[in-house]
Every structure is written in structure tokens, then in C-alpha cells.
Nucleic acid binder design. Structure first.
Lengths: 245, 245
DNA sequence: AGATTACATTTTACATGTAGAATTGCAAGC
DNA sequence: GCTTGCAATTCTACATGTAAAATGTAATCT
């Protein structure tokens, strides 16, 4: 648990609102815990998020749980039906495809911007991430691949120097991660993914905006293709009831 | 350990979850009221959203207000600082630019998809919207222009047959509207906007995906340009304190 | 048996209570 | 005059109460 550090009563010459130290809020920890539970599959798609039940299990009151559940809903990791409650988001094949399709132009654009106006050390940082990823791929560390993959895309999103693009990509992260769980097992996908990541980095290092955009879109399109034929995911797929309007 | 599991054992001739009638929830009405207040300028950027104060003023308890304020925060219309409270989002010039820049690839893509696989009656509907917009432009109806502009972009976002792109654009709507308030007064902007809208519709009707994307991106780029030299907006601009990192 | 209805339980949605942090107002000091 | 210190106040964050709605379950009727 985080220790409530000293409230530095320093005088602060700048009128900066505040350094704003540690969260220490129960809500934040609850959001983190629930997000983790959803992304790890601990809470399965379609499962109900009962506020009283969760509060009881976590030993806290209903208020922060309610707020956390709503936050997850805003993140797209859960869906609310008024008077019905909230359930973990179920992503069908169509939705998973849509997510990857949406990522294309957005993240392609981010890659372009990162290449054109990203910080000088971006290439080096991406290299570091990919080195870690290569390690994960070599040892078959599925979880490590996930983490480095997220770090890779996050680094580019953060480096594009456009807060709005960054915002949008962050708001996609959760659903992307949820969608990715369905292709994780595909043999060779990690190797291919790493290879595609390398092409993106090469273009970024060369400050080639168009090339970076193209490489990123190719990577996402390929990922989407790998989703289509993902094997053994029938049981993970939702039943798709009442989908088509 | 909650055994909350499958609830699909229901037979229900119609597998529709529920017609789900009227909202009637105080939260929803509060969200709508606050959103309206923010977008209409009733609540100004930077203004604090005090939960007790709002609850008192609206004659309801703090719970729904708290939830509503958090919902607005998730929408990007307000920002929260832990233990500090929530204030209405302030959009500086840089952020406004970033929003328009981000819209480019996303909405351009949506226009492409709408042209390629949108419903048959889309062209007709867009014509209807633009007819209304032409009326608004002719009569100098600022508010009417706003409404039809939103309707135009919303129609394309909805027609692209990609729920995720739609989601992202919806999540941008509020901030877009906030940003647009800063260029509204620019002379000629409505006429130009309408003209650009027409080009997008022409491409969509011709089922020309590339053309639609190009036209939409051109429209958004032009809008962004109009923001840059927007006159008389200095007093609307934020003070920009502690912005640059 | 199968469908239906009545009852028990759970849960949502809103209301209210409260400790402690943050902000504000104001007066004393440099 | 402008800061500085402190009290008073306000607000956030979490906890808890509760009516009405939704859900689950058992009893009842056809």
C-alpha cells in the first residue's frame, strides 16, 4: 500500500496547481483492480458486475465501487443497461474487426506524427521496447509480449504530440486488449507482430512519416487478418444473440 | 465467490433484451442538463462543478450529480483533479488544433466507409440535412448551423458501419462542439463549411470512397485553418497557465 | 407437465451522514 | 502593502440507509 508521503508544505515559487502526489483513493485502486480482473479474464465477458457483491468482496463500501464500475463503462470495458446493471463487455468477431479497422487510420496517423515530430530519443526508446519484446517472443512469454506490445503502441501514441489522438488511443486501449485476447494463441502471431513493429520503428527512425503510417496500418491490417482465422476461439466468442438489428 | 454465470437459459420468443422504455433516471437528465449548460456556455470553461452546489440548485441529492459530473469527465467536457474537484474543460488554441487534426484521419475514414458501404438512402438524408443547413446559412442562423453541422457529421459517423469508429467520433463530439464555439463568429465560415459539406456529399453519392475521404479531410483542415485566425477569441482563450510541459 | 402467479431476495438508484482534505476569509505580522 | 497564520467553511471521498424495480424461486392453477 502507498504510504501517505509528507505533504511538502514547500512554498513553491510557481503557482502550479499542485504536484498532485499519490492517488490513495479507493476508487482508483478499485478501477485498477477491476480493469485488471477484466483484462486477465478473471471477470469474463458477459458477467454481471454487481455493486453490492463487489463491495462486499473488496471490503469497501458501495460508493467507490459504483464509481469504478461506471468508469469501466466509460472505458468501454463494461456496458450498462439502465435499471439492469452493468456487465463486462462482450466483443464478438464483428466488433473485434471494427476495433482493428478503427485503429488503422488513427494509429497510422499517430505513427506518422511520431515520425515527423516525435522526440529525438523516440527511436531509442522503441528499440528498447522491441528488445524486450524480442526476448519475450524468444522465450514464448505470452504475457511479456502483451505488455511490450501495449508499451510499443502506447509510446507511439504518446509521442505523436497530439493530445487528442493520444486520448482517443488511450480510450481504445482497454477494448484493444480485450480484443487481443482472442488472437493471442495463434501460432506465429508474436513473431509476425514483432517483425511488423520493427518496420514501423525503422520508418520512425528515418523520420519517414508516410512510411511509418503505411507500416503501422499494414501491421494493424495483418493483426486483423490474424483475428479472422484465429483458431480455438469459438468458445471464447460470444453467442452473438441479438446482435444484428 | 459469486456464481454469477450464464443467464442465457431464457427462452424468450424475441431474444431482445428488452424494449427498455423511458430513461426516467435522474442521472440521465442531469447529464443532459449539464452537457447543455456547458455547450451553451452557461457553465464556462474553467468553472468549478461543485457537487453539493449543483445538487442544491437542481433540487436533487448529491449522488446523481456526482455520477453525472463523472460522466461529463469521461466525455471530455470536464476534467477531474483528485481531491480537488472537477472543472469544465478549457480548450486552448493548441488543443483545439489537436482536436481538428485528430478528426481528420478518423472522420475521413468514416466518410470513406460511408461512401463505400453506407446505406442506400444516405445521400438523400445528407441532402436533407444540407438543405436545412443552407436555410440556416441564408438566414444567418448561427445555432441552426451548429445543429445541422453536428447532424451532418453524426450521420456520416453512424453510416460508416463500424461501431468503433462511431464510438470514437461520438466521444469526440462534445469536445468538438466546445472547440467550434471559438470559430463560430468568423465571417464566411458558415458559407465555406456548407460548400465543403456539399463536396463530401457529392463524393458519397458517387460511392467514391477516396473522394469522400479527401473531401472530408479537406473540410476539416479548412476548419482548422479558420480556427487559427479566428478573431475576437482572445478573451475566450484560456490563460494557458502551466500548459507547456 | 407446463405455464402462471405470488412471494422472497437482490439490486439499482437516489438520499443522506461524516471525517478529513482543500479552499476561503480574515486578521495579525513583516 | 503584501504576505503569513489560523479559523471557519466548503467540498471531496467514502459509508450507509432505503424505496422501487428487477430477478429468482416456489407454489398454484389449468
Amino acid at each position: 500500500m502507498p504510504d501517505i508521503t509528507d505533504m511538502t508544505t514547500q512554498v513553491r515559487t510557481t503557482d502550479d496547481p499542485l504536484p498532485s502526489i499519490g492517488p490513495a483513493r479507493v476508487v482508483d485502486e478499485t478501477v485498477a483492480a477491476l480493469r485488471q480482473a477484466i483484462l486477465s479474464g478473471d471477470l469474463r465477458p458477459g458477467q454481471k458486475l454487481s455493486v453490492p457483491a463487489l463491495a462486499l468482496r473488496m471490503g469497501i463500501s458501495r460508493s467507490p465501487v459504483r464509481e469504478a464500475v461506471l468508469a469501466l463503462t466509460a472505458e468501454g470495458l463494461a456496458v450498462e443497461s439502465p435499471r439492469r446493471g452493468v456487465v463486462v463487455t462482450e466483443l464478438g468477431l464483428k466488433e473485434t474487426q471494427a476495433i482493428h479497422e478503427a485503429r488503422g487510420p488513427l494509429e497510422g496517423f499517430a505513427a506518422r506524427l511520431a515520425a515527423e515530430r516525435g522526440p529525438a530519443d523516440l527511436g531509442r526508446r522503441l528499440d528498447g521496447i522491441l528488445a524486450e519484446q524480442a526476448e519475450a517472443v524468444a522465450t514464448g512469454d505470452e504475457d511479456g509480449y502483451f505488455r511490450t506490445n501495449a508499451a510499443f503502441h502506447r509510446a507511439i501514441a504518446a509521442a505523436c504530440d497530439n493530445a487528442e489522438v493520444h486520448r482517443l488511443l488511450v480510450s481504445l486501449e482497454g477494448r484493444m486488449a480485450l480484443a487481443l485476447r482472442q488472437v493471442a494463441a495463434r501460432p506465429g502471431h508474436r513473431e509476425s507482430g514483432l517483425e511488423e513493429h520493427r518496420k514501423v520503428v525503422a520508418a520512425i527512425k528515418a523520420r519517414d512519416g508516410s512510411g511509418a503510417e503505411t507500416a503501422m496500418r499494414a501491421h494493424l491490417a495483418a493483426t486483423r487478418q490474424r483475428v479472422v482465422i484465429a483458431p480455438g476461439s469459438e468458445d471464447q466468442m460470444i453467442v452473438g444473440s441479438s446482435s444484428a438489428k
